[in-house]
């Protein structure tokens, strides 16, 4: 089996054209996806996480555009430079994408099988039979009756089944890099747990490099190896998931984790983060983007944007966290 490709995002900036001029939704993001791992990207509305995900396909829609940086994918080169036919072939064959609300992204008028064949045709698949066979295998792997699902229309499938169909369509052309945008939103708890388990298993069996984009820390905590936390278009913290969750270094990550009601621990310690997430228009032009909501705010935060500092596999962009980062207590990693 071929090895999973690595993905290196360097200094990526995506701007949106607004009445107030071009504003960055993603600015200067560096992120490396280690081959064969699942990376979770967590962020609130307006954090730029979906824009970042679309950049992996070079699929940012106007009024947005990638204004700088590169997205290197092994075996494909810099996606940002790809154009036309090359790009179209790369989407689907090299990079699979499961769209946000994949439950609703299927064509209601066509059976799943027809949509699968359409996908095959648009990618010049020589052997449609093999394609259908692969699709059935994938669906069976995810606990569904492939033949029946391919004969069904969207409305005949439950939310969890549609999500699996979305994953199948992303993988059936043998893409090795997979992006899942909010894979569990609008699913029930038990279904969510099932889908997350499937994502993990399929990821390992097919030797993929996976990126999961979500607003829900819980949804990635179960599956991801690494976690990147986004705020205001920047990655403010990135590292092995148990480290980031167990000993968060950035004040935003700390606040976010404290804001999640959990089943374990002292519930009375849970607190909301004060303030509100920034939008494109309210993002400060200079200094730290999180300072408005930050308890550790210092003078330097007003003027200087904290640079990401990497230390022992973890990256943090915070003036206040720089010193305390070194002795991270290793947590048991399950």
């Amino acid at each position: 089996m071929e090895t999973a490709p690595g993905v290196r995002i360097r200094d990526l900036t995506v701007v949106y054209n607004t009445p107030m001029g071009e504003l960055p939704a993603v600015s200067g993001v560096d992120l490396t996806l280690t081959p064969g791992t699942i990376t979770g990207v967590v962020g609130e509305s307006g954090s730029g996480k979906s824009t970042l995900a679309l950049s992996l396909l070079n699929a940012v829609q106007p009024p947005g555009r990638i204004s700088g940086g590169s997205v290197e994918i092994d075996g494909l080169g810099d996606v940002v430079r790809l154009r036309g036919e090359e790009l179209r072939q790369a989407r689907g064959r090299k990079v699979g994408y499961v769209f946000q609300a994949a439950q609703n992204s299927l064509n209601p008028l066509k059976t799943i099988g027809k949509q699968l064949l359409d996908l095959g045709r648009s990618h010049d698949v020589a052997d449609p039979r093999a394609l259908v066979r692969d699709a059935k295998d994938l669906l069976a792997r995810m606990g569904l009756d492939g033949a029946r699902v391919l004969d069904s229309h969207q409305h005949e499938l439950s939310g969890g089944m549609r999500q699996r169909v979305g994953i199948m369509l992303a993988l059936v052309l043998n893409a090795k890099v997979v992006v899942l945008d909010e894979p569990t939103t609008a699913l029930d708890m038990i279904t969510q747990a099932t889908i997350l388990r499937i994502i993990r298993e399929v990821h390992e069996e097919r030797a993929l490099t996976t990126l999961v984009i979500t607003h829900d820390v819980g949804a990635v905590a179960e599956v991801a190896d690494a976690l990147a936390v986004m705020y205001g278009g920047r990655i403010v913290e990135h590292g092995p998931i148990a480290d980031v969750l167990g000993a968060p270094a950035h004040p935003y990550t700390q606040g976010l984790i404290r804001a999640i009601p959990r089943l374990s621990g002292d519930i009375s310690q849970a607190r909301a983060l004060p303030g509100r997430p920034p939008t494109l228009g309210t993002l400060p032009a200079a200094g730290c983007v999180f300072r408005e909501r930050c308890a550790l705010r210092m003078e330097i935060c007003e003027t200087v944007e904290p640079a990401p500092v990497t230390c022992g596999g973890r990256t943090v962009a915070c003036h206040a966290a720089g010193h305390s980062l070194a002795p991270v207590k290793r947590k048991e990693y399950v």
Partner: peptide, 8 residues
Amino acid sequence: MTVTVLPE
């Protein structure tokens, strides 16, 4: 992406 400009 929504950009809200609050009027006076």
